[in-house]
Structure formats: C-alpha cells, structure tokens
C-alpha cells in the first residue's frame, strides 16, 4: 500500500532542479510526480520515480543529500471535491497531514494524491475504511 518517495535537499540556487531532472533522465529514470517545498534559503524536493534504488544511488553519487520515505497514493476521480472528500475523511479521524501533493494521470480522468502522514498505519486504515483507492508504486509507474 505504501509508496516509496525520495527527498533531496536543495539549496536555492538556480539550475539545481534542472540538474537533478537531467541526471535522472540521462539514467533513464522516469519521474512520475514531483513537489518542492522551499524557504528563502533551501528547498526539499520530493520525487516519485520508477526506480527508487537507482535514483537514490545516482543522486547520492552526484553529491546530493537523499532521504527515502514512505508516502500514500490515493486515486480519486479528477473532478471538483475529489481532494476535499479525502481530507474530510482524514480530518474526522483526527489524522494530520504532514504534506501532500498531487498529479493527474495520463488519461486525465483520475488524479493521484500523494500524502505523508505522521501516523501512516492509522491513515491507511481510515482511508480504506472510507472506501478510497490506495495505489502502489508499481501502479503509479504503470499509469
């Protein structure tokens, strides 16, 4: 149920993001989803890729600080209120979202919401109970 995500520390220097995406592309690694959280000084880049191990090794070898964490991917219909229903379900169960981001699959019918929770197991339970679709890393890559 969990999806592996890699996070990369970035100083806010121009071109760093492009460098990373180029390195990954040169090594035939596909980026399925990406988000950047940043402050004035630094940023945290999060990536869902098709080959986590390889991406991690390549980026580490390139001198980047890389971390690996589990996130959850929830598939919802790409229409108004899709996100709201998920958040409502989590909120009523008292589960805090550490961060989230989203992307739309190729057909444009469904959106995939990526969530990071402090209490992952509880979140899984709640989401499944409320009938949401959790998808795996392999499924994301197949989208």
């Amino acid at each position: 149920m969990r999806v592996e995500q890699i996070a990369v520390f970035l100083e806010n220097k121009s071109g760093r993001l492009a460098e990373i995406t180029t390195i990954l592309a040169d090594n035939n690694i596909n980026i399925r989803a990406l988000s950047v959280a940043d402050t004035a000084d630094f940023g945290i880049l999060r990536l869902i890729v098709d080959d986590v191990e390889k991406a991690q090794n390549i980026l580490k070898g390139g001198g980047f600080t890389v971390g690996k964490t589990d996130v959850l991917a929830v598939e919802v219909a790409d229409k108004t209120g899709g996100l709201a229903t998920v958040l409502r379900s989590l909120h009523s169960a008292g589960i805090n979202v550490e961060y989230m981001y989203a992307f739309v699959n190729k057909t444009g019918e469904n959106a995939v919401l990526i969530f990071r929770f402090e209490r992952m197991d509880e979140a899984i339970e709640v989401l499944l109970k409320d009938g949401f679709t959790l998808i795996s890393g392999a499924q994301i890559c197949a989208l």
């Binding site: 996070a7 402050t39 600080t65 890389v66 971390g67 964490t69 550490e98 961060y99 990071r116």
Partner: peptide, 12 residues
C-alpha cells in the same frame, strides 16, 4: 546537510 539531519517534511 547530511542524511541524519535531513527531513522530507519542511516542518521537521
């Protein structure tokens, strides 16, 4: 920043 002090959540 080394891995031991790097967090994927900005708040942390």
């Amino acid at each position: 920043v080394v891995e031991s002090i790097f967090f994927d959540a900005m708040k942390k």
